[in-house]
Design a protein around this nucleic acid. Structure first.
Lengths: 227, 227
DNA sequence: CGATGCCTTGACCAACCTCAAGTGGCGTGG
DNA sequence: CCACGCCACTTGAGGTTGGTCAAGGCATCG
C-alpha cells in the first residue's frame, strides 16, 4: 500500500505532487482503518491530523445539545478531510461503511505546505469546492421542498460517483435513511415516503438495498430545481 | 485612501503582509463604491476579481429558477469575497448598504500568492473560517426552529461586530427583514413575528430601526441552542 | 400630502413532523 | 434448518410549525 500504486491518487490532494515530490508526503502518512459506525474524531477534538479517504464512506456532522443532528457532508474515496483553523475540529466524523484513510499529522503536513506551494494551492482549491458545495446545500436546506431535496441529493451523489469512475446509475447509497434525513434536514419517514413515491412514479428503482437506479434523470433534474 | 491609513487592515487579509510587503498588493488594487441595492456580480459571472470590503455591508445569495432565494452570507467591513475555483462565481453579491471595496484582479492577485506564501496561508485560514461558518449555518437551516434561528442570528451578528470593535449591543442590523428571512430560511412574516415576540418577552429592544439591543444575551443563548 | 416600500399583524392552510404499527432482511442460536 | 430477535425501513393517522394570503401601520420622499 503506497502512493505509487494508489488508485485514487489522481483524484486526491496528492495529485498536486509528482512522483519525485511525493516522498516527503509519504514519509509522514499513516494508514488507518475504520469499521462502519466507528468515530474518527468528535466535534471539538484538537485538530491533530488531516485525512484523505482511500476507501469506504464517512459522514461529518454537527450536534445540538438535545441530540438533533445535522450531517454536513458525506466523504467518499479521494475526499480530503480535517481542515480546521480554530482550535479543534468544527464537526465530528464517523465511518458510514468500513473505510480506509491516509492520516497526516497536521504539524508535519503544514510544514510541507511551505515546502510545496503547489500543495497549498491545491488545498485552497479543495476548500473553494467545499465552500461552493456548502452554499448549494444551504440553498437546499433553506429553500427546497422535501421532494426537491431528495432529487437533488440523488443527482449530486450520482455526479460524485461519476467523477470517480464509478457507475452513476445505479447510484451507490452507502448511508442509512437516517443519515440521509439528517443531511437533508428531514426525518427518516419523509425520506422513505419520498423514495417510495419516486419509485411509484417511475423515476427511480432500487435493484438492491443501498443502490438506486436513476431511471429518468432529466425528470429528476426538473424536480430538483422546482421546475 | 491607501493601505497605510486603512482602519481595518489589521482585520483583513492584508494583515498577512507587513508594511514592507504591502506595496505589490497596493499596486494592483482598485477601490470601488456601491450604492445600496447595487449588484457587484451575478452568480455564474466569470470570476475576474477578488474583493475586500472596507465599508458597508453586502449579501451573497443563490437563486432557484422560480425566484426563491437563499442568502448564504452577509459581508461586513474587513470581510474577503470572491473565492471561486470553478469557472464563475458560485453566488451573486449585492450591496445591502452603500459600500466600499478593494478590488483585485484575480490574475495578479494569484501571482502574489506565489510571491508571498503568507498570503496564501491567510487565505486558507479565511476559507477554513467560512467553511466552519457554513456548517454552522447548515445546522441552523436543517435542524433549528424559527425561534432558535433568529436568536442564533442576533448572537452571531453581535459577535462579528464585537471582533470589529463596533458595539455588540445595540447590534447594527443593516439588512432588511426580507434579507434576514432569506438568510434564515424563513419568511419575512415569521422573522417579524419572532422579533415582536422577543421584544414582548423582554429579550431585545429596538431603539431605532436597524438597531437591536440584546437585553438578555444569556437567555438568547439558551434559545439559540434549544435549551 | 399622497405614493411607495418596508414592516407588522391576523386568520387560515398545508407540508412535514410525530407517534405508532407493521414489514422484511439478516444474523444468531437452538 | 428453522425460530427468533433485531434493526432498518416503510406506511398510516393525526398534529404543529411555519407558510400563505390579506390588510393595515408607519416611515421616507417626492
Amino acid at each position: 500500500m503506497d502512493c505509487g500504486s494508489c488508485k485514487i491518487r489522481h483524484l486526491a490532494l496528492c495529485s498536486a505532487l509528482n512522483d519525485d515530490e511525493i516522498g516527503p508526503l509519504e514519509a509522514i502518512v499513516r494508514r488507518v482503518r475504520l469499521e462502519a459506525g466507528q468515530t474518527l474524531f468528535h466535534e471539538g477534538d484538537p485538530a491533530a491530523h488531516v485525512f484523505n479517504v482511500t476507501a469506504g464512506a464517512l459522514k461529518i456532522y454537527k450536534l445540538l445539545p438535545d441530540g438533533r443532528r445535522q450531517v454536513t457532508g458525506f466523504l467518499l474515496e479521494a475526499d480530503f478531510l480535517g481542515l480546521a483553523n480554530t482550535e479543534g475540529y468544527s464537526y465530528g466524523a464517523e465511518a458510514v461503511t468500513a473505510a480506509e484513510l491516509c492520516r497526516f499529522p497536521w504539524r508535519e503536513f503544514n510544514a510541507l505546505l511551505d515546502e510545496f506551494p503547489k500543495l497549498g494551492n491545491r488545498l485552497l482549491g479543495i476548500a473553494d469546492d467545499e465552500l461552493a458545495a456548502a452554499q448549494e446545500q444551504m440553498l437546499l436546506l433553506g429553500r427546497k421542498s422535501a421532494t426537491e431535496r431528495v432529487a437533488s441529493f440523488l443527482l449530486r451523489l450520482s455526479e460524485r460517483w461519476k467523477r470517480r469512475g464509478s457507475p452513476e446509475s445505479p447510484v451507490s447509497l452507502p448511508m442509512s435513511r437516517a443519515d440521509i434525513a439528517d443531511f437533508l434536514g428531514l426525518t427518516t419517514e419523509t425520506v422513505s415516503r419520498t423514495f417510495s413515491r419516486f419509485k411509484r412514479e417511475g423515476y427511480i428503482a432500487t435493484p438492491e438495498s443501498h443502490q438506486v437506479a436513476l431511471l429518468r434523470k432529466d425528470a429528476l433534474r426538473d424536480l430538483a430545481e422546482g421546475a
